[in-house]
Design a protein around this nucleic acid. Structure first.
Length: 1121
RNA sequence: AGAUCCGUAGCUCAGCCUGGUUAGAGCACUACACUGAUAAUGUAGGGGUCACCAGUUCAAAUCUGGUCGGGUCUACCA
């Protein structure tokens, strides 16, 4: 007995998926999908490592679906796609999690808990949710190799990072420098940008702001100011919201292209006459319009209005180099102590005229921009605040005072206010006010952060900026704009990469330094370190490194590496620089570190001393992550690829957008609008979820996630496809179709079969193009449209009878082969996006036909288009048939004649012979679909058609330009005769604005509009007219059909099998009797009745109504003969 | 603050690159119909200042500039 296609009660995606998962596990389907392609061209994919210390969310499902579908697609295209998994295990989120769990803060580490214990905790916490992640990976059908993942905390991984760092060090790209970083005095620690981006860190606060007046020094540079001011005192005005930085002021920065003015006025506090410099654009902020050129002599302390007068105007560049007197001189902040040449006006483009005065008070220690411009001009640096947040000694009355209330001291007096008061008194303040702005706070202590100079190690990415920009242009970005815009701009504005992190659980910086910093050494491997360890012991003697002499170092983390002391060339001890490196370096170096160092290659001085798979796996063909990784992983991969090997690290990158909730809000635990991926998958199935995520919006658009959308996908796409399969299986099992007959050549198949196969091949072509272009959304939507509109609602609907009527012979086999081929091809087309359902469908089909030897759809090749099957004319005329049917149905609706009532004819005006030929070929389909007996074609000759003419704007517009309006109205006024002439001659002469103009036939569109005296309906060039006369003859046939429908329903209600023969008795009733007599044969054939009897009286049986006539029907199974 | 994406029907999205005269589809809603595969489908109906303003053009949802709103990233500044 031949195998049969599996049939189901109803679609249940989750149970299908459970079944397929079991099958995959048993057959090791994933492993096989890779091993089957051994020797094939590799397609290199990098997995961006997730951090398993948090639960996976629905947004992980979208990026992983994207990764998975590309890898599956490429596998089906014949590539070998290895997917090594990985785990990101270092970094702040993990440390913060552990601290929270232990209820400690950073300060406790090394005190209440040893670094060793702490890191042990981190190591344990890192993979806490690994099971959950593995579970999700499995359930969502993400194929990735989790058996041999790279793990960033492992020694061999860190060792490779060290090697990379050393290579950078040797190229002179790794350096130490002071940088201005966010720092929390209350917590005593620097903050990472990540910490600063915690929700709620930016708060609106009211600070005392002051516009300070810096007195210009008269010299050659500033002469133009004093000349204009008539030798009065001249001040530069600069605004600050942090008056505590004023003692550390060393410069004033102006924008070179900004316009400035010198204004004569009075100091509103001291009422002394002054001349001040500020940006022209900001004058209105400090001076009222009415005060301009007001009477200066009238001004007194009581005056409401401040008179002012513009004395001169100049550019910021004119101010460059002007000197000023120090605002708040003390012992501690002399120019000498600052080093450099301070108290000058500088120029930089970061200055804006949005706020303040257009002149920026510059304290290099307390602002990144200040620092940068300060260095450029060598104005030195003063850090007059210590790490606790209080002023140092030597600042007079301000010494030792906290610059902000870091200690929650109830008696705290705001030093910023005192500074402002002092300035007011000294004629050095122009305006003091409370200013509300958003300012970052330490998320842990809730105290304001300050920017503070800290030592840090940098990678000199700026050295190869141009090269990185150049390389970026070769990367295929999806979407393009992210690469050119967001990423491109980011590269253009690149700064050196600050690697340092003052944390505990991470990759230690492998640099050892002598105490005076004069000698240092960068270590590039474990062997090298062990050698150095022994050497140091030999040179320095004693107990130095005694724990590491025997076995070498066993763990490259803190605190162990910090215990190691090395020896410099000159014999001095060296200690490790205490920093850890940015975790982004960990992930950015994964192309190299995932394979680890190869000791032989290393010893041989290989440029690429990584284990062998590396050679085949760099750079990646494809990576994909969320768009939030643009400046994260995408950047670090790119930077390291360029820095280390002058290469891109990936050729194509897809950045997917955010997943928002259904109202467009970002999902966050705080808002409680997160979607649980497990629950979603369990409820709707991974395939429906994946399909929804991919087809609803382009991956890079942000997605408003709505469960209703998944439900719709489930119903509409999978439901339809499932039903189509179910339909096929039902009849194929009856007929024992197993594709054992020879493949019937297309020219021996009916039109509709050739049509659906043509459409199918068009679909294959277009879907493949879309996948090749990393546009899965387009591919998915194409398949959806095909399944719904073409396959299910046209092909199957029209062909239904072919499957259950008649014998198992040529036409039926054609139908089975065609539908089978469609289903099988669809299963392969959708396999990348919905891997479970595809494999289920494929498996169900293939287990009967055995057309493929492969056990899984994921092992076969993606369908190849057969262009010889594509017949555009055929697809076009089928469209005509669909349109014509739709128009006729619409007309039937208008006159309320149901489809079951046959009608005699439709008239179709044809404008040319090719249209008629096209229609004739699909005439039968139209007739059966709309239940009419004949199609008549009307041509001009019949004189029935009324035509409509419309200009072809596209063609005419180019030629005529601004004459279009006149021509349009001329054309609209055409008579039927004129249209006829144009059609006959192929051109027509017009006169527009008394100029002759020859109109060509292709410059207009002529459609038939009307058939006088008939009901018509049209769509584009197609018009149909319907003969709505119902003759008695037609009515009888209609009755018969109606009756068939009722009997079929009874059959179904009685639960008969499709093939059961029946006996029917009908009560004689009115005019129906005639119908029954006349169409008895037809009725019997339709309902598989052996006997159809008309009886006078029927006791039992079902009472039904046929076209408002009551009748009784009695149905019973015929006994088998 | 800079960059970037988005804004079309109640909702989700096409169309925009390459301008062309009734702006489409699905969902939802209403009514009718179809069905021995269908949780499907068909027909009809309501529902749109294509965010706004200006410009270019004979012609703008489409091109240009700006504004507004939303998202994201980066930065945080006197």
């Amino acid at each position: 007995m031949a195998a049969s296609y599996r049939e189901y009660q109803q679609l249940n995606l989750p149970s299908i998926e459970a079944e397929i998962l079991t099958k995959w596990a048993e057959y090791q389907a994933f492993e096989k999908s890779v091993s089957l392609r051994e020797g094939a061209t590799p397609f290199v994919f990098y997995e961006g490592p997730p951090s398993a210390n948090g639960m996976p969310g629905i947004h992980h499902v979208i990026s992983r679906t994207l990764k998975d579908l590309v890898c599956r697609y490429k596998t089906m295209k014949g590539y070998q796609v290895k997917r090594k998994g990985g785990w990101d295990t270092h970094g702040l989120p993990i440390e913060l999690g552990v601290e929270k769990e232990l209820g400690i803060t950073k300060e406790d580490i090394g005190k209440t808990i040893s670094v060793e214990e702490y890191n042990q905790k981190c190591r344990q916490a890192v993979l806490r949710f690994k099971d959950k992640w593995d579970d999700l990976t499995n359930k969502m059908g993400y194929w990735v190799d989790l058996n041999d993942p790279y793990i960033t905390f492992e020694n061999n991984y860190i060792e490779t990072l060290w090697w990379c760092l050393k290579r950078l060090y040797e190229k002179g790209l790794l350096y130490k420098s002071v940088s201005i970083q966010p720092y929390s005095p209350a917590a005593g620690t620097g903050l990472s940008s990540h910490e600063l981006n915690q929700p709620g860190t930016y708060k609106d606060v009211k600070d005392t702001s002051v516009v300070a007046m810096f007195k210009a020094v008269r010299d050659d540079k500033s002469r133009f100011l004093f000349d204009a001011a008539g030798d009065e005192e001249v001040f530069f005005m600069a605004w600050t919201t942090t008056p505590w930085t004023l003692p550390s002021n060393l410069g004033l920065t102006a924008g070179p292209k900004i316009d400035y003015v010198l204004v004569r006025t009075f100091n509103p506090y001291t009422h002394l006459p002054v001349s001040v410099v500020l940006a022209k654009a900001l004058v209105a902020k400090y001076f009222k319009a009415e005060g301009e050129n007001a009477d200066f002599a009238d001004y007194s302390a009581e005056s409401k209005l401040l008179p002012w007068k513009t004395l001169s105007e100049f550019k910021g560049s004119d101010l460059e180099g002007c000197r000023y007197e120090q605002l708040l001189p003390f012992d501690a902040n002399t120019a000498q102590r600052a080093g450099g040449d301070p108290f000058r006006v500088l120029n930089d483009t970061f200055v804006t005229t949005e706020d303040g005065t257009g002149i920026v008070h510059t304290a290099p220690a307390f602002g990144a921009d200040d620092y940068k411009v300060g260095r450029k001009y060598n104005i030195g640096i003063l850090t007059l605040v210590d790490r606790e947040g209080k002023f140092v000694d030597g600042l007079g009355e301000f010494s030792k005072r906290f610059v902000k209330n870091y200690k929650d001291d109830p008696a705290y007096v705001d030093v910023n206010v005192d500074i402002s008061v002092k300035l007011k008194k000294e004629n050095r303040a122009f305006k003091v006010e409370k200013y509300e702005h958003s300012y970052p706070h330490c998320w842990r202590t809730d105290k304001p952060v300050l920017y503070y100079p800290l030592d840090a190690w940098f990678i000199k990415t700026t050295a190869i900026k141009d090269r990185m920009v150049q390389l970026n242009k070769t990367i295929n970005w999806k979407p393009k704009a992210t690469g050119e815009g967001r990423f491109g701009n980011w590269l253009e504005n690149m700064v050196d990469w600050n690697l340092s992190r003052s944390r505990f659980w991470g990759t230690p910086l492998p640099i050892w330094r002598t105490e005076d910093g004069s000698e240092e050494k960068c270590i590039g491997s474990i062997n090298e370190l062990n050698t150095e360890i022994r050497k140091a012991n030999e040179v320095l003697g004693g107990d130095i490194n005694k724990h590491y002499l025997h076995d070498g170092i066993l763990d490259l983390h803190k605190p162990y590496v910090d215990e190691v002391i090395l020896v410099s060339a000159s014999g001095k001890p060296m200690r490790r620089e205490p920093d850890l490196i940015d975790v982004w370096f960990d992930s950015g170096a994964m192309p190299y570190a995932q394979w680890g160092l190869n000791q032989e290659k290393l010893a041989a001085g290989d440029e690429r001393p990584f284990n062998a798979p590396f050679d085949q796996n760099f750079p990646a063909d494809f990576i994909a992550e969320g768009v939030d990784q643009t400046r994260g992983w995408f950047y670090t991969l790119h930077a390291l690829g360029a820095l280390l090997y002058d290469s891109v690290a990936y050729k194509t990158v897809v950045s997917n957008g955010l997943v928002l909730d259904r109202n467009g809000n970002k999902m966050s635990k705080r808002l409680g609008n997160v979607v649980d991926p497990f629950k979603t998958i369990e409820t709707f199935g991974a395939d429906a979820t994946r399909w929804y995520l991919i087809t609803n919006a382009s991956p890079w658009d942000s997605l408003k996630f709505d469960l209703e959308g998944i439900r719709e996908v489930q119903r509409k796409f999978f439901g339809t496809l499932y039903n189509t399969y179910q339909f096929f299986a039902l009849y194929a099992n009856v007929d024992k179709f197993s594709f054992s007959e020879k493949y019937i050549p297309l020219d021996q198949r009916p039109e509709i079969d050739r049509w659906i196969l043509s459409s199918l091949n068009t679909l294959v072509k277009e879907a493949t193009a879309a996948f090749d272009d990393y546009e899965p959304t387009i591919a998915g939507r194409l398949v959806e449209d095909f399944v719904d509109e073409h396959l299910s609602n046209w092909y199957v609907r029209l062909c239904r009878r072919r499957f259950w009527k008649g014998e198992y012979e040529h036409d039926k086999i054609c139908a089975y082969q065609t539908l089978y081929e469609c289903l099988e091809t669809i299963s392969r087309l959708i396999a990348p996006v919905s891997p479970f359902f595809a494999d289920w469908l494929f498996g169900n089909l293939n287990s009967v036909s055995n057309r493929f030897t492969e056990g899984s759809v994921h092992h076969v090749l993606y369908p190849e288009v057969n262009t010889s099957v594509i017949d555009p004319a055929l697809e076009e005329r089928m469209q005509l048939a669909q349109d014509a049917s739709s128009l006729v149905l619409s007309l039937r609706k208008k006159v309320n004649i149901k489809v079951r009532q046959p009608l005699q004819r439709v008239l179709v005006p044809v404008l040319n012979s090719s249209m008629q030929t096209q229609l004739q070929k699909v005439e039968d389909l139209i007739k059966s679909e709309v239940n009419v007996k004949e199609v008549q074609y009307l041509t001009d000759a019949d004189g029935f058609i009324k035509k409509k003419i419309k200009p072809n704007f596209q063609a005419l517009g180019k030629r005529l330009g601004n004459k279009m309006k006149a021509v349009t109205s001329a054309i609209n006024a055409f008579t039927q005769a004129e249209i006829a002439t144009l059609e006959k001659e192929g051109s027509y002469s017009l006169e527009i604005d008394s100029e002759p103009l020859i109109l060509q036939i292709h410059e207009v569109e002529i459609t038939s509009e009307d058939v006088p005296g008939w009901m018509v309906s049209s769509k584009g060039p197609l018009t149909v007219a319907l003969d709505v006369t119902v003759t008695p003859e037609l009515e009888q046939e209609g009755n018969a059909r109606e009756l068939v429908n009722r009997i079929q329903k009874i059959r179904k209600d009685n639960g008969y099998d499709l093939t059961d023969r029946i006996l029917v008795k009908l009560s004689k009733a009115g005019t129906l009797a005639d119908s029954i007599k006349q169409f008895g044969h037809y009725i019997k054939a339709e309902v598989l009745a052996d006997k159809l009897e008309l009886v006078e009286e029927l006791e039992e049986g079902t009472a039904i109504e046929v076209n408002e006539q009551a009748i009784k029907v009695w149905v019973d199974k015929a006994t088998r003969s």
